[in-house]
């Protein structure tokens, strides 16, 4: 097991497969929380927070916050414009567990460095970040947990509200 601490990021040359299998990542101080990756999952809720599904739906739609609809189709009927750079998430809860969703929202590029989906919980190693956003992760631990709970309900017969 490799431990990555602080601002350290896996080098570009390392293939994502190995990373996801071997590493447990501790987020940097400025990241939204400290977490451990095992396989393709973050098992435990960030900062031990219990998310709220309704709040998650709002974060996904909010242009200043998650703005996930910019890239994904989501069941948000009040929003006419959904992007398609990423996969359709309307039934994502049926194919991924909460722990898998958590890693994809918090630190997706640990799975695939080339992916365009940003790491929402990390903040280090970025080029020319605008001053107002410097050294800040895109979302808070609470917002990510809200998203995880909401997304887990989508297409999932057990948790569908």
């Amino acid at each position: 097991m490799i431990e990555l601490r602080g601002r350290q990021r896996p080098g570009r040359a390392r293939i994502p497969l190995v990373l996801a299998l071997l590493c447990a990542t501790s987020g940097a101080v400025a990241d939204c929380a400290t977490f451990t990756i095992i396989g393709d999952r973050i098992e435990f809720p960030l900062a031990g927070i219990e998310g709220d599904a309704e709040a998650g739906a709002r974060v996904a739609q909010d242009r200043q916050r998650g703005d996930c609809v910019i890239c994904h189709q989501l069941p948000l009927p009040n929003d006419r414009f959904h992007g398609n750079l990423g996969p359709d998430l309307t039934t994502v809860g049926a194919r991924l567990s909460a722990a898998q969703i958590r890693l994809r929202v918090a630190a997706n590029r640990q799975l695939n460095q080339e992916s365009i989906m940003p790491d929402y919980c990390l903040s280090g190693d970025r080029h020319r970040v605008a001053p107002a956003h410097r050294d800040r992760p895109l979302l808070t631990a609470r917002e990510i947990e809200d998203l995880v709970v909401w997304l887990s309900t989508l297409g999932n017969p057990e948790t569908q509200p």
Binding site: V69, G83, L85, R109, I116, S123
Partner: peptide, 25 residues
């Protein structure tokens, strides 16, 4: 070069994903 808080490059959008929809655009 990837840049900004979203850590995306010009090429990510205009080479790799040209033709895809970003919200309505």
């Amino acid at each position: 070069r990837r840049r900004g808080q979203l850590d995306l490059s010009c090429a990510d959008c205009h080479d790799r994903y040209a033709g895809a929809r970003l919200r309505g655009e």
